[in-house]
Amino acid sequence: MDYMSIANSPLMWLACGLCVALVIFQAALFVRKSLIAGKKLGITNEQIKSAVKSSATGSIGPSLVILAGMISLLVAMGGPVSWFRLSYIGAVAYELMAAGFGAEAVGVTLGSPEMNATAFACGLWVMTLGSIGWVLFTGLATHKLDKFRNVLAGGRKEMLPVVSAGAMCGAFSYLSLDRVVLFNSQTYAAIAGFVIMAIFTAYNQKANKKWIREWSFCISMFLGMAVSIPFI
């Protein structure tokens, strides 16, 4: 039997659907709790609306990239698994690698004509086993990370935003310079994204325009990408 009929069976859809449902359930629950807490902290509806708009427009680009990565996963692992794995623990690069290692372990190249049910199953097991570390660790340790953050702030509450600013500058420097040191068209994309957003941010420190706060990420990433096209 062709393994794709198993990979795309209604039962696989159900099994994978349960996992996606858990992600959505948790998100809905946390949003409800956050809205209540937000009211008490004095967050206005206007702020919530702005946040929703900005994160929605900011998520479109990255989701397109994930969708492009989905193509090779669809061919090798079928619909349900691709759909579930890309909305669950891990990331688009991780999933392809894990499925590949799984198939390789039974001597098959992922997505090749030799791809069979055993390679599919092994890929699926490796995808799960290789990814649970992230959820297990966050499930058990997230509340302790908060204490660690206080240690980083030297026990001073007014230093917490400095810790966050340092963490963000550090993380985003790593993520963007990782692409800059490739010294190819991605270098131009990263620098262009930086320059465009720097202009928006500097201008908006005084102007304080709502549309800039909501749209600047979306505009910067697509414009930055466009600038790099001649260098590809």
Partner: peptide, 29 residues
């Protein structure tokens, strides 16, 4: 072309932090 979307986004994220915190941003870079 889509491969170059994330680098541009990462650059933008850095700039958004760098402009209000130029010293911390320079250290990070």
């Amino acid at each position: 072309v889509l491969n170059n979307l994330l680098p541009a986004l990462f650059g933008a994220m850095l700039a958004q932090q760098f402009v209000p915190h130029p010293k911390i941003g320079t250290v990070a870079i």
